[in-house]
Amino acid sequence: MAAARTPLAQWGHSLLSQSRNKPDALSRICLACQSRYASAATTAKYRRGDANAPTKKKKERKHFKTEDLKNADKYSLVEAMRYIRAFEVGYPSNSPKYEIAMKLRTLKNGPLVRSRLNLPHPVKTDMRICVICPPDSPQADAARAAGASLVGEDAIFDAVKEGRIEFDRCLCLDTSLPKLAKAGIARALGPRGLMPSAKTGTVVRDVSAAVRDMVGASEYREKEGVVRLAIATLAATPEQLKANIKAFMDKVRGDLNTLSDRIVKDVHEVVLSSTHGPGFTLNGEFADEEGTRPEELAR
């Protein structure tokens, strides 16, 4: 941004533009009356599709770009909350959510962070869970009791084949996995990320416990070097939000440590945002010493 209007910057700018165009032009006044057009030789060089132009291949970036945060504005949690609450004023307090984005220092390829956690103060979502297990087994009853909205085998397979996918998460009992594999619905579920697999922890032995975990759980995954998650409802107090953020940070740090030894990932930036609000880079503090008091945001 052209915020820096300091004499030093001006001097630097004029120096740069002089050396670029006329190395021996000394007078600054001369700058104003310089020709704006590059010479014929240089335009020819930069003309599109010129075969003779020397091609300089750009070195491909291996890591996702991380900005230097030295000069970035950083906010304490309470200050960020105060702004966000101002931006979200007038919306019903259960509809907008605080969102968190965690930027990682990471390679563009390699394993991704993907997991789920139970937040201390859950963000309530009416998630529809589908459980694949024999519909008249005790397992099925337990799953229904735990909050699964769809339980069964063939009925679900048929519905999915017809294109009716009426759930947001899908679990599978380990003994039903061969049947699921035979049903050939991976093509429908796979792209949506719903296909149960042992790798994502959605093929389980104890279905009811898994459903219970999932009902209050939030799922997150790394995408383009950033992990994003709805972290709390807007009605949360600063303490609640702090607890949720801490739980999330600890969980992700744990995930990062359990990756293979050769993969080094670490947290670069944590940004708090909301459904309608801007993003605030957090500085890790809870409240500023002479700023907003957390009690003020208690409601």
Partner: peptide, 8 residues
């Protein structure tokens, strides 16, 4: 948003 001073 990352531009210095922009958010402020």
């Amino acid at each position: 948003a990352l531009q210095t001073d922009y958010i402020s």
